[in-house]
Design a protein around this nucleic acid. Structure first.
Length: 950
RNA sequence: GCGAGAGUGGCGGAAUGGCAGACGCGCUGGACUUAGGAUCCAGUGUCUUCGGACGUGAGGGUUCAAGUCCCUCCUCUCGCACCA
């Protein structure tokens, strides 16, 4: 393709001296960026604190517009990265011109795997590479002229930032979730309740009678941040454990694509599950795209159902199952426990209950104990990938035990099978093959009975029937509908103490520790008894120590016997400390895990508000001003948050959780972090593959007669995300050199709707460039550089178009429809050009002001040349004259049989009868009707007449 | 398999149920030029007997009127994937 960037030809002898080109754009852009910085043009006033400017806050509406902040990666930006930043900038600039106090800033998400991996690759300390990367990104983004408040650009790696990340961690750690009040409360209140007896210990023993470790165990078991020994995602290739959200569906790490295996490890967890109900319910109060809400709902996975307890034959033990279909209890023909279910240790009898059991049930083992143990070994050896591949083939083994169906006393064989997951519900199910496809498949494989309890429709062909229908074979439930049977059966169970209605969630607690160097240290130490202790606030921050060897300890990707080794464990001088935690100086060991990258991004939007505050993470008044609820029904949060959809169940879920904890503890007034959300699309680009299927540099591919050639050889085209791996990246620096930043901004905004992904095409950028050249020429004489607008009033026609454009552009900006706003401005500019006369000043000034959010440097320059010394940042955006939006005459379409046959210019106030007469008389209508009889006419004055023939 | 979204010229894309293709790229022709890969102007859905006919993934339907609403199907993208 001829996407190669060519150098402009400023030395062109014949080009006018004052034409708008890349060189002139560069001069203008630099001039205005320096002036904006010098004058602090985009510094947003706070209502309180060091950035307080009460007189600027008073009487103005506010807008908090936010971008998902970037990782400062080493490879620099391509033109896809700034799409969202430009969009929020245009919106923010527009809102400033309509009187809003706008907060817009950009920081850096600088901890985490990418930064660390880059540092390891280059053999340089992550702090050095991170700072260099941030500097490079600041330079690239700086050239775009984004209207950010530079004072608020924080990085998560700043000591003054992660001090507060650690502080928030301690807030979470020192909290528990009060189920009765449905909110987080300080741990101190829990202990006080135990001490006073207001809250009973599980064993009903007096609090004071418990030992220190018993008290710790009880309290730690309720903390919102806690240490657990549980199966977690261990990734030897990365040398760290990962959260569920960071593992792909085929059991690999999202970063690096290494295999991940479940392993029992001692790790920090966050009790996000406590908030499941509120995280689902409050989605309804957010202005988010429905697909993202749906993804969160699905991820949290709320299911209403019942717990049912089955007695085990010949035992006092019972099996508790969760089911969403208590109505089908009469159809339960067996039970299944997950292979990891603890009851398997006790319920398995010493011998098979019968001699003639099928081999599929026993697995050929001599005793149930052997059979179950063998199956457990098999199941635990399976990786998630294998479990995935085998997902349709049902495997399992009979435990030798029987349970009793409480509704009719039937004996139900109890199986262990890996299609039941320990982590969901109770890790045990009642199997109803007639009404569940998985149970049906298992029943087929193990020759288990099928009892239908829901009458299927006549055309039903067999297998499991999961639809609705009247109950059959169900004793006292027969004939009732499904909702009724669910309710009646649950009531029946509750009356007999056999079960109760319950709600279950798919969401699991959040694995919060990583075996990495480049992250926030935990503000936790361990005493000689290995008791975890939170550091007091005044000991924060716990500074990340400088070490020589910061690389992670990684292993062969499939070496699942390996165990994580945090790099900080090697910094023994740092790990072993003597501290006075209130009872005199004592030796302690520091926690050597670090926090995941998500930690900083869980609250950075709060720090932008008050970045220099040393007393609090954010001043309460400042937070309330920018993010507080604006009405009874408004829950609060950032007004507009723009970023990619890939964070739907990661960052956007974690940050909601932290924010709700802060809200419960009274630290913020907003109940949600992000009230408005828009997902921008990705910029894709053509990539080219040679005969071997290897990507070749896209900028060196030529197009000839519809075929693509690289070094003379044919290559095939595909489309993908822009980037290094597809060798199709186009950098903003190239665009700055060729056209200037304003052209790039206009082009990115005009390509299509913000939410939609679209392919980049370098050769199309010139269209935006030409548009800016035309606007420039409208104000500046290309030959002399003199301003060439006239003081004449615009023609009536032009004036009407101007006001129509103002009206449309305003609406489009407000709705983030930047592509159509650009089109409208081009139309108006072309109309002015077409008159051939100098532009009337009122029109030129309005065009410049409307252009300002999109192409701020060019607009500022023209505004200044038009004689306005002040920046136009706070100049009022043009307002349409409503009187001019109503036209005197309009074009009326004359249809015959729904097809357009003619057009007539008519006054807007024309009557139905008059319009119909005019329409019938048109040549087009005459021709089309021609002797045929008219059945009816539809007249919609003044725009349409439809003549319907018989 | 389940869920969500999308299919409009050569390309990116516009169209409160009421003139399909705004605007841009590309292409064609012209102007200015030593030159054009600069800039400007004009044209550009397909077919046409110049009346018009056809045209928004396919097929039905509702309507005076459908890109838009309803039904069936096809294709693509994204998300989830034994969650009982």
């Amino acid at each position: 393709m001829t996407d190669t960037v060519t150098t402009p030809s400023p030395s062109d002898a014949t080009a006018p001296a004052h034409r708008y080109n890349a060189d002139l754009a560069a001069v203008i852009e630099q001039r205005w960026q320096q002036r904006w910085e010098r004058e602090g043009t985009f510094e947003a006033p706070n209502p309180a604190g060091p950035m307080a400017e009460p007189d600027k806050v008073a009487g103005r509406p506010k807008l908090y517009v936010l971008d998902m902040f970037p990782y400062p990666s080493g490879s620099g930006l391509h033109v896809g990265h700034p799409l969202g930043y430009i969009a929020t900038d245009v919106f923010g600039r527009f809102k400033r011109m309509t009187g809003y106090n706008v907060l817009h800033a950009l920081g850096y998400d600088a901890f985490g795997l990418p930064a660390e991996q880059y540092a390891v690759q280059t053999g340089t300390h992550p702090r050095v590479t991170t700072e260099a990367n941030i500097a490079n990104m600041r330079r690239q983004l700086g050239r775009l002229g984004l209207a950010h408040d530079p004072r608020r650009s924080v990085a998560t790696t700043d000591l003054e930032f992660y001090k507060w990340t650690q502080w928030i961690f301690l807030q979470v750690y020192n909290s528990w979730y009060d189920e009765a009040l449905q909110k987080a409360r300080p741990i101190a209140e829990l202990i006080a309740a135990y001490e006073s007896g207001d809250r009973l210990t599980p064993t009903r023993a007096a609090w004071s009678s418990l030992s220190q470790s018993e008290q710790d165990a009880l309290v730690d078991g309720l903390r919102l941040a806690y240490i657990s020994q549980a199966p977690v995602n261990w990734c030897p290739g990365l040398g760290t454990v990962l959260a569920n959200e960071e593992v792909t569906a085929d059991g690999r790490s999202e970063r690096g694509n290494y295999p991940v295996h479940k392993r029992n490890l001692r790790q920090w967890m966050m009790r996000i599950t406590a908030y499941s109900e509120r995280l689902i319910a409050d989605l309804d109060r957010l202005s988010w795209p429905e697909p993202i809400k749906l993804m969160q709902r699905n991820w949290i996975g709320r299911s209403e159902g019942a717990k049912v307890r089955f007695a085990l034959a010949g035992s006092t033990d019972e099996v508790e199952v969760f089911t969403t279909r208590p109505d089908t209890l009469f159809g339960a023909t067996y039970l299944v426990l997950a292979p990891e279910h603890p009851l398997l240790d006790t319920l398995v009898p010493g011998a098979w209950p019968a001699a003639d059991l099928p081999a599929s049930w026993t697995g050929g083992a001599a005793t149930p104990g052997e059979a179950v143990a063998a199956y457990q070994r098999l199941a635990s050896s399976k990786s998630d990938v294998e479990r995935q591949v085998d997902s349709r083939d049902k495997t399992g083994v009979f435990t030798g035990a029987y349970a009793v169906n409480p509704v009719d006393g039937r004996a139900l064989p109890v199986f262990a099978a890996d299609y039941v997951l320990m982590g969901y519900g109770t890790g045990a199910i009642m199997a109803v093959p007639a009404e569940d496809e998985r149970d049906y498949a298992f029943a087929e494989a193990f020759s288990l009975p099928v009892i239908r309890t829901v009458a299927p429709p006549a055309d039903f062909t067999g297998g499991a029937y999961t639809g609705v229908g009247p109950a059959i074979n169900s004793g006292f439930l027969d004939g009732y509908t499904m909702p009724e049977t669910k309710r009646l059966m649950t009531e029946w169970l509750v009356e007999r103490g056999l079960g109760e209605a319950t709600v279950t969630f798919k969401l699991r607690d959040w694995l919060f520790s990583r075996q990495r160097y480049w992250g926030e240290p935990f503000p936790i130490v361990y005493d000689e008894n290995n008791r975890a202790l939170a550091l007091p606030d005044h000991m924060l921050p716990v500074e990340l120590p400088d070490v020589d060897d910061y690389s992670p300890k990684t292993f062969a990707p499939d070496d699942f016997t390996s165990a994580p080794e945090p790099p900080l464990g090697r910094a023994q001088d740092w790990v072993n400390v003597t501290l006075d935690l209130g009872d005199g100086p004592k030796p302690y060991r520091r926690e050597t895990n670090t926090m995941p990258q998500w930690a900083g991004s869980c609250w950075y939007e709060l720090r932008y508000l008050d970045p220099t505050n040393t007393e609090r993470f954010v001043d309460a008044d400042v937070e309330r001003y920018w993010m507080g609820p604006t009405s009874e029904t408004h829950i609060g949060g950032v007004d507009l948050y723009v970023g990619g959809a890939e964070h739907a169940v990661l960052h956007l879920l974690y940050s909601r959780f932290w924010h709700k904890v802060l809200f419960d503890l009274g630290h913020v007034s907003s109940g949600e972090p992000f009230h408005g959300l828009v997902n921008q699309g990705y910029i894709q680009a053509a990539a080219f593959l040679d005969a071997r299927g290897i990507h070749v540099p896209a900028d060196q591919v030529e197009e000839r007669d519809g075929r693509f050639l690289y070094e003379g050889e044919p290559v095939t085209r595909e489309y993908g995300k822009m980037g290094k791996s597809l060798k199709n990246a186009v950098t903003p620096d190239d665009m700055f050199a060729e056209y200037g930043a304003d052209t790039l901004r206009i082009y990115e905004m005009s390509m299509g709707p913000l939410e939609v992904s679209r392919p980049w095409e370098t050769r199309a950028v010139v269209g935006s460039y030409r548009f800016l050249q035309r606007v420039w020429r409208m104000v500046v004489d290309e030959e002399t550089g003199a301003v060439r607008v006239s003081d004449d009033a615009p023609s009536d026609e032009l004036n009407r178009l101007l006001h129509k454009t103002i009206d449309g552009v305003r609406t489009d900006f407000a709705d983030l429809k930047f592509n159509t706003s650009v089109a409208k401005l081009i139309e108006l500019t072309n109309a002015v050009t077409k008159t051939g006369a100098p532009a009337p000043r009122v029109v030129a000034e309005a065009v410049v002001l409307m252009l300002a959010p999109l192409a701020p440097h060019t607009a500022e320059e023209l505004w200044s040349r038009l004689g306005h010394p002040q920046t136009l940042t706070y100049q009022a955006f043009p307002v349409a004259d409503a009187a001019l939006l109503v036209e005197d005459t309009v074009t009326c379409v004359v249809q015959v049989g729904g097809k357009v046959r003619d057009r007539i210019e008519v006054p807007v106030g024309i009557s139905e009868a008059e319009l119909l007469d005019l329409a019938l008389a048109t040549p087009g209508a005459q021709r089309a009707v021609e002797g045929q009889s008219i059945r009816t006419t539809i007249v919609r004055p003044p725009r349409l007449v439809n003549i319907v023939l018989v």
